[in-house]
Design a protein around this nucleic acid. Structure first.
Lengths: 140, 140
DNA sequence: AGCAAATATGCATTAGTATGCAACTATGCA
DNA sequence: TGCATAGTTGCATACTAATGCATATTTGCT
């Protein structure tokens, strides 16, 4: 699917959900690529949830994917000026409550355990993740 | 409502619908402000539909409104760098089928009949509007 | 006061989206 | 070959959003 075949509203639609914006912001700010388990440890959201949101970002032409064994790396598509402009907008978004910053902090910690720049383990923050999910259901 | 109080996902959500993108694109490209009846004549969409979409854009902090008698003028909010960056993105969006351009053409024609820079009439393209709505229902 | 015109909105219907759970596929390694 | 692990997806459910119709509101004008 060429970028020109994707409607602008599809791109903004992909950016209209908070979890997907967290993924995009993380990649825009760090300039990194990451696999699913690294996203799980950074955002503390269940793996199936992030997997589906990443799929939507891919279908909107915002992410591309590289498979490496069991791991699948996701990175920003930067091939058009239009998308680069959008990345700038995303970086300029407010982070009033500092939530994006917390994602980035956990992400950087997670990146430390890479070996030769590759992820070699699965989800690490299992405990943190469960606590995070529990807190949310308690609040609702 | 201050711009900082509006969540980024709300802004992108507002931009995720095609009619609302047409409104935004029109204002970004022309730099104009316009009232509802002018939008109706430019986009050839029913008045109640555009009224509601404009409301959503307002609530997302993308448009501001100035009332002048029976007419209500809508313009872009440009008070933050973040929004200006978004406007640039919107101008850079693809217009593969030339639909945005058609809106702008009809809009410019409509602007000709302003008096002293103010709209003094209601919907003009009643016939065009009805044809447009009819074509859509025929296709579905 | 009363009417006409510009804009806004309540309601019902339809369509689309997000999520949790559980089951599935795919891959590397012993 | 079998198992553990990284990632994906079908299904049911709950929620949210878009639309058309009709009606309401606001304002200027006579």
């Amino acid at each position: 699917m060429h970028i020109l075949d994707i409607k602008p509203e599809t791109v903004f639609q992909a950016l209209s959900e908070s979890t997907r914006l967290r993924i995009m912001r993380l990649l825009c700010v760090t300039g990194e690529e990451a696999c699913l388990c690294e996203f799980v440890d950074a955002l503390l959201e269940p793996q199936y949830k992030l997997s589906r949101h990443i799929k939507i970002l891919k279908q909107a032409g915002l992410l591309s994917t590289l498979k490496d064994g069991r791991w699948v790396y996701h990175r920003l598509v930067t091939s058009s000026e239009y998308l680069q402009q959008l990345h700038t907008s995303i970086i300029m978004m407010t982070d009033y409550e500092g939530f994006y910053q917390e994602d980035i902090k956990r992400f950087n910690q997670r990146m430390f355990i890479r070996e030769s720049g590759r992820c070699r383990v699965g989800v690490q923050n299992t405990k943190l993740l469960e606590d995070n999910i529990k807190n949310k259901t308690d609040r609702s």
